[in-house]
Amino acid sequence: MAQIIGSPGRYIQGKGELNNLCKYAASYGSRLFILTSPSGKKRVEPSIQAGKEGTGVETVYEVFNGECSMNEINRVMKAAEGAGCDMIAGVGGGKIHDTAKAVAHYMGKPVIIVPTIASTDAPCSALSVIYTDEGVFEKYLFLPASPNVVLVDTEVVSKAPARLLVAGMGDALATYFEARACMQSSAANCVGGKSTLAAMALARLCYETLLENGVSAALAVTENVCTKAVEHVIEANTYLSGIGFESGGLAGAHAVHNGLTVIEETHALYHGEKVAFGTLVQLVLENADSEEIETVVDFCSAVGLPTTLSQLGIKEVKPDQIMEVAKLAAAEGDTLGNMPFEVTPEDVYAAIMAADAIGRHYAEEGV
């Protein structure tokens, strides 16, 4: 199997870059379909419209219904076709991005991804995570290509709620550990090949960047300011993690996230918050070095990521319910199969309970 690395055609990051969306879009068409939330439209439309003059690009806005499901993908696709649009933009968060990418794929159109938050590593990937209309994980939709353009306006992202940037750190935190597991098992990555040296280097850089800048960035965005630390974390959450997970591969952390979606209480948490706990579960499965586990728990605690079931919203731990999480996480075809050893639902159950105990222990010790 060949070594393959995937990446967007262009990655653009800087303050005020949202004004240039139509300028970049003009290379791909003349009628841009923009999928965004109602609140997102209010925030981004003035900047987009201000930069539209002279580009020859017309814009059509569509409101996202909140879930990246096949029903929503089909609805949005019909709207884009009806509007006669020749390119798609997803402006907002991860589920908007995944929906826009899927719509563009099925329509055979170019896609531009514009994160207004840095809460997931979805923007750069050739992947859409599909859920049911009720928010339960359904499947991964692997796409033939990464987005044509990923455009990140760091001024916009830094003004989003701090919790969103922190959730992105949780998603990015898993990148190195999952890529490492896939490298050890020689598992295929998300673009149908084996990991490259570049992918592993980016995954490791992602982890190191979080440890070095994460706390400073989390504090800065609580003041709605964009510092160098914030810029670095935005790049780690969006690009380093995006290339690192896709070209390095997924393993235990994301599988545990998928399992957690069966518990309704966890639906109030962001993707990256659940992935952060999944990272701790994966490290327990691996019997990782205690110093490595302590570093991860310490980082999560410092920036505000969950390390216990209670912090995930699961106030009453029911063994049968946790076993359902474990069964879905270990389901055939999910990414726990990429671990360098066999993992059973019973193993996952034990690791979840042990990870919860570790999180509670360090919280009590004040680590």
Results as ranks from 00 to 15, higher is better:
196 T>E: 07
197 L>T: 09
203 A>H: 01
191 V>F: 05
199 A>L: 05
196 T>L: 11
193 G>D: 02
201 A>F: 10
209 T>L: 03
209 T>C: 05
206 C>K: 10
180 R>T: 06
209 T>E: 00
205 L>H: 07
207 Y>M: 04
186 S>N: 15
210 L>E: 02
208 E>K: 11
197 L>Q: 12
191 V>W: 06
181 A>Q: 08
184 Q>C: 07
194 K>H: 14
187 A>V: 04
181 A>T: 05
202 L>D: 01
210 L>I: 00
183 M>H: 13
200 M>W: 04
201 A>D: 05
199 A>D: 02
183 M>Y: 14
202 L>H: 09
189 N>G: 04
179 A>E: 03
208 E>M: 09
185 S>F: 04
185 S>R: 13
191 V>Y: 12
181 A>L: 04
187 A>R: 06
198 A>E: 12
191 V>Q: 00
193 G>N: 10
202 L>F: 14
194 K>F: 13
199 A>N: 00
206 C>L: 04
192 G>A: 02
209 T>K: 03
182 C>M: 01
207 Y>F: 13
182 C>V: 09
184 Q>R: 14
187 A>H: 00
199 A>K: 00
188 A>P: 01
188 A>H: 10
188 A>K: 13
185 S>Q: 06
193 G>W: 00
184 Q>M: 13
190 C>M: 15
205 L>C: 06
207 Y>V: 07
187 A>P: 00
181 A>V: 00
190 C>F: 07
188 A>S: 14
201 A>Q: 12
195 S>T: 15
210 L>Q: 01
184 Q>L: 15
185 S>P: 11
195 S>H: 13
205 L>W: 01
180 R>C: 03
179 A>C: 11
189 N>F: 00
204 R>H: 10
197 L>S: 11
186 S>Y: 12
181 A>C: 11
191 V>C: 15
182 C>R: 10
189 N>R: 04
195 S>C: 11
203 A>G: 03
187 A>I: 05
197 L>F: 13
184 Q>I: 11
186 S>G: 09
207 Y>K: 11
200 M>L: 15
190 C>E: 13
202 L>M: 15
196 T>C: 08
184 Q>N: 07
191 V>M: 08
211 L>N: 02
